[in-house]
Design a protein around this nucleic acid. Structure first.
Lengths: 193, 193
DNA sequence: AAAAAAACTTAAACTATATTAAGAATAAAT
DNA sequence: ATTTATTCTTAATATAGTTTAAGTTTTTTT
């Protein structure tokens, strides 16, 4: 059962007891998502925290010229959510769609709030979860303000070995904030070293 | 009393009851910090969450060439902490020092853990705090991967009107990830518009 | 008030990255 | 299996940002 993958994930933070497992299981929904299917679109309110059982997603904006800028990738055992839209119930400016066919488990706003209110553990676990994501983002900012594109690319390959070979370079370039043409040039330079 | 500023800050999230106020008050320490004084240096373990009553701090790395890269500014009613070092008790790669003479209130790791364990409210409040900081960082990443330096500068001025005129341009440039010379050029271009 | 340190500006030469365009290679859909 | 769509590459030209260096202004320290 896919819910087990979620329970194992939680137990990496704080193990859940029987009651918490039941409460959680009753409040989540499993879905199967096709490649290119959206789970969030601009102007929607993001009403779910999404846990990825298997597959791969990208979260991005589209600028006035139609160019995508990728804020996050998320794959198995990770979460994806527009937290700003989710907590403040405001329209999202982001899209989330599947890069690979995926299986996800979602918990919606009211059910998550119920868990937060009735079981301290969830507040705690989601605090730690977001702290870890915050640390990741801090590192990414530091990279962006202090390193050239080539270093950022190398760092990306090292840091995300499990997803980098599942991604076309166009998407990696978008994540790094460079054009695909320039990434191609960088790859050429690296290969000659 | 400066502790009131911290209590008011908390009450913007969830008001504290009498007992919680007492517990909190007994577990924090107030300090006065001079300009240029460090509250965290590289290789130290960050043992405190720091609330700023008044003043202004910068948090940054120093690269191999001795150049500072500013990850965060933090001023009155804000928190500053190397969360990675704090939670994982590992050596920090960051510095935090005061740009202005400042008054701070600190809570150390063991006291914060005590509050987390005994009062759900703190877990909750710190979750929401970090969620908000996460959202800010997401916006900054989006800016960095999708905008030119001029736009990022204009956005910075709009988003932080309270601190931008207290900061020398050298530090703003470092935060934006550009050289001071180039920021000077940008400012010249803007002024001619 | 004077001296020292830090910040700001300008400009020329250089390097990193973007843009445009086109063809080749690969993957996805029918 | 074929077609269609997407991805990758190359190269020439353009723009964004850095480096170096020097002079000026402002702020801080003595």
């Amino acid at each position: 059962m896919n819910i087990n993958k979620l329970l194992t994930h939680f137990s990496n933070y704080i193990p859940l007891n029987e009651e918490e497992i039941i409460e959680l299981s009753n409040r989540v929904v499993e879905r199967s998502i096709k490649r290119k299917q959206f789970i969030l679109q601009k102007n929607d309110i993001c009403n779910n925290y999404t846990f990825i059982v298997s597959g791969l997603f990208k979260m991005y904006t589209v600028d006035k010229n139609g160019v995508e800028h990728i804020l996050h990738f998320a794959s198995e055992n990770d979460w994806i959510c527009d937290i700003n839209s989710f907590h403040n119930k405001k329209q999202s400016s982001l899209y989330i769609d599947a890069i690979e066919p995926s299986i996800i488990i979602q918990i919606d706003n009211s059910n998550l709030m119920y868990l937060f209110t009735h079981y301290q553990k969830f507040d705690r676990t989601f605090r730690v979860l977001i702290e870890n994501k915050f640390i990741e983002l801090e590192n990414r900012i530091l990279q962006n303000i202090s390193s050239k594109a080539e270093e950022r690319y190398q760092f990306f390959l090292e840091q995300y070995p499990n997803i980098c070979n599942r991604l076309p370079n166009v998407l990696i370039a978008s994540y790094l904030g460079i054009t695909p043409e320039f990434l191609s040039k960088i790859r050429n330079i690296i290969s000659k070293k």
